[in-house]
Design a protein around this nucleic acid. Structure first.
Lengths: 314, 314
DNA sequence: GCGCTTTACGCTGCGCGTAAGTATC
DNA sequence: GATACTTACGCGCAGCGTAAAGCGC
């Protein structure tokens, strides 16, 4: 036959006998009766097509062919053990790699604590984070280059074919302006009241902007600037150039004496935080663990969000 | 468990399914019923401790752990096939190595044709030949550095502990002298008639000398020289310095117009050609084949010996 | 005769195939 | 409802252990 079956069991028996040179003791070491062990060796010899041991009642030793096979068997067993050990390391999350794609707002504000906890739990797992806009995040997942994504969608469900989308939660929006701005002490905030003021927008393809546009329509803001980064928004607002509206999860960037943040009690103004992964194909053990931590932390005490909200309102 | 059992069969099944991504077709390719194949995959998954395939009725694909295991499995199977193929090559004598130790007389005269035939039959097997005196040959065998030896012993059996000795045949002796020597035409040759003539001896530790001394005792030859090599004996004899007595198997060195060789019809003057190998431990397939050729050729038509005898007597 | 391997021989259970079940599209 | 994997189930045989037999020292 071209490729006979070979089991690690048989090779272990072979090596044991090669070492002990005694069927009885090798059988004991293998937890087999001596005849059973003998049969196992014979079946191996049949499989490989060569007598591997010279044996008479007084002496057992390798044949030249056996000596030839011994290092191969040793190597094969070592390689097998290495492969299985490596697999076990991944299953047990002692090794592994997780690639998350996430909106910049989540990547900078919400994820770091999660990553820190995950890292503490599974220090052997390497982490990668692509902090990109929603579409790019989802493309990474679709292409299999990220395990899952934390993205956003205004009100429309963004599940494309082959992707599985789960709503993690809803992010509300806050006004951000200078602390000495009139709006900082306005009694009841409405979008209409914001409209006249110079407004710092995020770029059109950002999830923040998309959600905002959807809620405003057809109302238009008094656009002063369009910028790419929330940090830039913060700088502009602090300098008194204008006001802006940002999601709750990004407020950590605006927590300064000079800036006021106020919740906008507008049900239609919100963005959904989505957890996106491929529909088919399970996550690796390491990715699944991080995935589960994400879900759990969004459901369970969202003390970070609550804390920030409370402080922003105070 | 530390080291679960793993069979090449299971890994082949794994790779087949990884490629075909379809249980039914993979089962066919493996010559198994689909449920049996399914069970085989499951048992592999249990053994390695990880789910290797994501499967639903519409789609089968590797899990991340399966993708991790795939190259390992491929490598393990390739290594196994290589090891088994190498072993088969040795068993079938497509590869191998044989180390023979042989007396110089045999190494130069009798073995070359045998080696040529062996080489033609098994061109992949490398040959080594140690052309040494009897004791050194036997030491090589005892030390496991030669597979077997073609040695000699006068009349005493030279089987040491752990060695197996077999008499291949008996080598008779011939007088060698110049063609114009008186002895070349002497009617009936006896040792006593040789004694007066200047005699070229081999060294004392040579088998030729040992056999000769044993047969002569207590008669002494008129020693002119002691030399190491038969070729030197030939030169001395041809130059007319003296006569000598050499085994039949070495006569090929003396086949010249200027030299006469005459069989000595003395039953007590002979040397036994021994085939020596270790008592325990079989020979490699390649060595066994050469061993068998040696035995067969010594038993079967010894046309070389006969031819030389006849010519020497003519 | 002793020690060790092989042979003999029931027996258990693994692993096979057939057939029914179930889930997914 | 068609397709493809899983479960159910009976069965044969590989492989086990016990016991007896060979065999080399």
């Amino acid at each position: 036959m071209a490729t006979p079956d070979l089991s690690t069991r048989a090779m272990r028996a072979f090596l044991t006998l090669a070492e002990l040179r005694n069927f009885t003791r090798a059988a004991q070491a293998t937890h087999l009766s001596q005849p059973a062990f003998s049969a196992l060796i014979r079946s191996l010899e049949d499989a490989v097509g060569a007598r591997l041991f010279d044996r008479n009642t007084r002496n057992v030793q390798l044949t030249p062919e056996g000596r030839l096979f011994e290092p191969s068997a040793r190597q094969l067993l070592a390689d097998t053990a290495r492969a299985l050990g490596d697999l076990a390391d991944h299953v047990e999350r002692r090794k592994g790699h997780v690639h998350v794609a996430a909106l910049p707002s989540l990547a900078a504000g919400w994820l770091p604590a999660l990553f820190a906890d995950y890292r503490a739990a599974w220090p052997g797992v390497t982490l990668a984070l692509s902090d990109l806009l929603s579409d790019a995040c989802i493309d990474l997942v679709r292409g299999g280059r990220a395990d899952f994504a934390l993205a956003a969608a205004g009100l429309r469900a963004a599940d494309s074919a082959g992707l599985h989308t789960r709503v993690l939660g809803t992010d509300r929006f806050h006004l951000v302006c200078r602390a000495d701005h009139l709006l900082a002490s306005e009694a009841r905030l409405t979008l209409r009241k914001l409209a006249p003021w110079p407004f710092i927008h995020m770029t059109r393809n950002s999830s923040v902007r998309q959600a905002l546009e959807a809620a405003l329509h057809p109302l238009q803001m008094n656009t002063l600037l369009e910028v790419e980064q929330l940090a830039t928004v913060m700088g502009m607002v602090e300098a008194g150039l204008g006001i802006s509206v940002v999601p709750t999860l990004t407020l950590y960037q605006f927590r300064r004496e000079t800036i006021a943040t106020r919740a906008l009690p507008l049900p239609q103004l919100r963005r959904r935080i989505l957890l996106v992964r491929r529909r088919e194909g399970s996550l690796s053990a390491a990715a699944q663990a991080l995935h589960d931590m994400v879900v759990q932390r969004f459901d369970a005490p969202p003390q970070a969000q609550a804390g920030r909200k409370r402080r922003a309102q105070g």
